[in-house]
Amino acid sequence: MLIANLGRTRRKLLASLDGLSDEHLNKSPSNGRWSIGQIVCHVCNTEKGIVETVLDALPSTSGKVEERDVSLLIERYESNEAKTAPQAGFLTKAELIRLLEESRFKYLQSVFNKTHESSLAEKSMDHLLFGKISLKNLIDFIWLHEQYHIDHIEETKKSLPK
């Protein structure tokens, strides 16, 4: 289900960008919140960061740990990692999609080119922010975090000029 969840969430994210112009994507809401482009960059950066962590931990001989409710970790991550807006500059929709594809197919895919979902569940690491966590749960974090920001994008869309 891990891959199905990753795919389903990514398709939803791409669908959420449908019909938005480059100007829409780069418009910051007046309340100082992030633009949709910045949200997308944050999603990409998070995916890359988590993948690098998982790739570093893969060769270790760490054992299995209990599955965790990853959704509970998102607020913790957001309050810690997302204090500063991503330095995105003006990015076109094509450039944003390219970033999403790079983080997905160049980074995340490299995890699955090395191992299986079942092996990820058998390994764990001591994460600075999350504590003991399985590598599978870390990959779960990617799609749950993306889902969180799809909601964020939908909220931001409401503030865009018609």
């Binding site: 891959i3 795919g7 990514r10 999609i97 197919f105 895919q109 699955f112």
Partner: peptide, 17 residues
């Protein structure tokens, strides 16, 4: 299906356009 030595999911499964 997962490949023998890795998962190697299809690009459509991971949400690539």
């Amino acid at each position: 299906k997962p490949f023998e030595f890795s998962e190697h999911p299809t690009s459509f499964a991971v949400g690539m356009v």
